[in-house]
């Protein structure tokens, strides 16, 4: 009860302090209609904070299509600061992710495949953008709140919707625990509302302090760190994307072999802050894929442009990938 009071008064305080900031950014925002939006944004930011600061033990299930993946998810903060997170896959091969501060280790069996990356978010569970304030996403996404969400995992929630402003990207539904601000359920849907991926916590226990089982994780041996080769080769084929939905910026581009193949490939990686898209260019003779498009949590589209095969991959609607692929510019010859 006291924590309830505390958190609600805290919320009030936050809203209070947030108001001047809002007024600064746009003078019109003092008007009534924008008020619920800012509350939604506030709630999103609280979730981002909760994901970093809460001590909790949870189990969850991820559902993609007809595939279910149960996992354990523990998170806490050591008294002297660093965050610690442990995710254990419960079905199939034993895979674990340990994140200590900025170092994330991915453990596989056999151990040879394990590796450590420098990253303060665990890759794959949630979009990295969910760990930051919504402001970063604001130009291209909007967040809206429903009055109240349904009960999730036995707890009362608030419902948030993260929508792309242009319907060129996937949307997210977020159910957020009233008490702790924790994300209890997530749905990724197409702009038309078809659910592509879901995350559902099945148990959630908040702890006063770091969960006991995490407290001695610091001592464990970390797998080798993964370093990238520094001297990258610039794209060679002279085919470049000219269209991307607003807000996508180039993160990296290079020329190399595709994954484990011997396929010389140009690669361009773009991000809009929430999702990413890769554009691959290779010689169609060597690649020999038919034109195809597959829409899913990770969509893929392949087409041919003169002598080149263009393949676009990303968590985006197929129509968007298709538009990217069909708007390639051949620079030379």
């Amino acid at each position: 009860m006291t924590t309830n009071l505390l958190s609600s008064s805290l919320l009030g305080l936050l809203l209070f302090t947030a108001a001047p900031v809002l007024a600064q950014t746009s003078p019109a925002s003092e008007l009534q209609p924008t008020a619920p939006v800012s509350a939604a944004e506030q709630r999103f930011n609280e979730m981002a904070q909760a994901l970093r600061e809460l001590n909790f033990e949870a189990t969850l299930v991820r559902s993609t299509g007809n595939r279910l993946e149960p996992m354990t998810w523990l998170h806490g903060n050591y008294e002297d600061g660093p965050e610690v997170e442990l995710i254990v896959m419960l079905n199939g091969p034993d895979r674990r992710i340990v994140r200590l501060g900025d170092d994330t280790s991915y453990y596989f069996q056999p151990m040879d495949d394990s590796y450590t990356l420098r990253s303060d978010v665990t890759y794959g569970l949630l979009p990295a953008a969910f760990y930051q304030n919504f402001a970063a996403l604001k130009p291209h996404y909007q967040v809206s709140a429903a009055e109240r969400g349904v009960r999730i995992t036995g707890r009362e929630t608030k419902f948030l919707r993260v929508l792309s402003r242009d319907n060129d990207r996937y949307h997210y539904g977020l159910w957020i625990d009233n008490e702790s601000g924790m994300l209890l359920k997530m749905q990724m849907t197409t702009p038309q509302g078809e659910v592509l991926e879901q995350l559902q916590l099945t148990t959630f226990v908040e702890r006063e302090a770091i969960p006991i089982s995490l407290s001695d994780l610091r001592g464990i041996q970390r797998p080798p760190r993964l370093h990238e080769i520094r001297n990258r080769v610039a794209p060679q084929f002279g085919a470049k994307p000219t269209y991307l939905p607003a807000g996508f910026e180039l993160l990296r581009s290079n020329h190399r072999y595709l994954a484990a193949t011997r396929l010389p490939t140009d690669h361009f990686l773009y991000s809009d802050g929430l999702t990413e898209v890769s554009v691959y260019v290779t010689e169609s003779e060597a690649q020999s894929l038919p034109e195809l498009g597959i829409q899913g949590p990770e969509s893929i589209y392949n087409t041919n442009l003169q002598n080149y095969a263009v393949t676009v991959v990303g968590k985006l609607p197929l129509a968007t990938l298709q538009r990217i692929a069909e708007n390639m510019a051949l620079v030379s010859e």
């Binding site: 993609t64 007809n66 595939r67 895979r95 453990y107 794959g124 597959i294 899913g296 893929i300």
Partner: peptide, 16 residues
């Protein structure tokens, strides 16, 4: 690991 199992990404595809 935590992710997108590659296979999963493609497993539920619908050919559009």
């Amino acid at each position: 690991a935590g992710s997108v199992a590659i296979a999963a990404g493609v497993a539920l595809v619908a050919v559009l």
